[in-house]
């Protein structure tokens, strides 16, 4: 229990540090949110009004105190640009990003785990010689290139999938839930999720393969062989289950990282997600929105880190023992 509590306090400390760094970072960055208002009729007095509205005319320490105070109440503030609560803006696009990320991760990790196990079995064969460079190449290929390639082939040339967006023009849905569970949404999800999955599959695949190779040297595998189990049974029931553990950690961390890291895929496929919103917010010096989005990403990462840790303990009692 104390372990969990300590962990929680630590997480809060990390988040506080991140929030503070974010606050300072955006205020030290050159640029000024009022530059978005520059217009022939914009005057020095109007600029002061805007600065006052944004609270930017207050001393830095007071701005910081208000910011932290709001955070403690769960308030992320008002976006400078959208003039709307940051939380609402983020919540509006978060489901799109989560669905994209989760779909891609699940595909990438299932494919990676199976592929990695298979490659470990085929060690030293021509299958390995062909597949490993291919995996490395897709892992190294820039996402936008991959995305454009998929677009050119499956959207422009074959016309199987739409060229962007999350739903068809003019499509109407009774609710947000109906929208993200519709066939139309799924149809639009295919290409961006595939791009992201192709980009992500390299890590689990190579990780799985390396783990398998390691596990296969263990005595219990030799033992199983001596017992006369079939090769497939040994691989899947004995080796793969043990080799899967590090993948769980990688999945949790990968999820945390890709919630905010989909800027490129979101831009290429005009996917209304949080990564795109984040980049826009930074570019327009929308401090509250950028801070809120970054903080959310950090929180997801920190939480997923903790989840990975705990899952690891559950899946592998040896680790839980050591931690306790």
């Amino acid at each position: 229990m104390t372990h969990v509590l300590r962990r929680l306090v630590l997480m809060l400390l990390v988040l506080w540090a991140i929030a503070s760094i974010l606050f300072l970072m955006f205020r030290l960055m050159p640029g000024d949110p009022t530059t978005a208002y520059i217009d022939p009729t914009f005057t020095a007095e109007q600029r002061q009004v805007v600065l006052h509205q944004f609270g930017l005319d207050l001393p830095l320490w007071r701005q910081y105190a208000i910011y932290i105070g709001n955070l403690l109440h769960g308030e992320l503030g008002l976006s400078f640009r959208y003039r709307a609560p940051v939380a609402g803006l983020i919540l509006n696009v978060l489901p799109n990003t989560l669905l994209l990320t989760l779909t891609a991760l699940v595909i990438a990790y299932i494919f990676g785990a199976l592929g990695g196990a298979l490659l470990a079995m085929k060690r030293g064969t021509w299958v390995e010689a062909v597949t490993i460079p291919l995996v490395l190449a897709t892992r190294a290929a820039p996402e936008f290139w991959l995305g454009m390639l998929l677009l050119a082939v499956f959207a422009f040339a074959f016309g199987w999938f739409p060229s962007g967006g999350a739903v068809t023009a003019g499509a109407a849905f009774p609710s947000a839930l109906a929208r993200v569970t519709s066939a139309d949404f799924a149809h639009h999800l295919v290409l961006p999720a595939a791009t992201l999955a192709i980009y992500l599959q390299g890590l689990p695949l190579l990780l799985m393969r390396a783990n398998m190779l390691e596990v296969m040297q263990e005595e219990f595998i030799t033992m199983a062989r001596m017992k006369g189990f079939g090769e497939w049974s040994i691989m899947l029931r004995h080796a793969a289950r043990n080799a899967l553990l590090p993948l769980v950690t990688a999945f949790a961390l990968g999820f945390g990282a890709s919630v905010g890291g989909n800027v490129v895929v979101e831009t290429v496929f005009s996917w209304p997600g949080i990564g795109r919103m984040l980049v826009d917010a930074v570019a327009s010096s929308d401090y509250p929105l950028a801070q809120g989005a970054f903080l959310l990403i950090a929180a997801v990462l920190v939480v997923m880190n903790a989840v990975a840790d705990m899952l690891y303990g559950v899946l592998d009692p040896r680790v839980a023992h050591a931690a306790g």
Binding site: G159, G164, R276
Partner: peptide, 23 residues
Amino acid sequence: ARWILRVVTNNDAALGMLQRGEI
């Protein structure tokens, strides 16, 4: 009948959409 605006952040995709009638 209707006027529908789509946010398309990818310039090249917008060209493809015009050719395909998505816009």
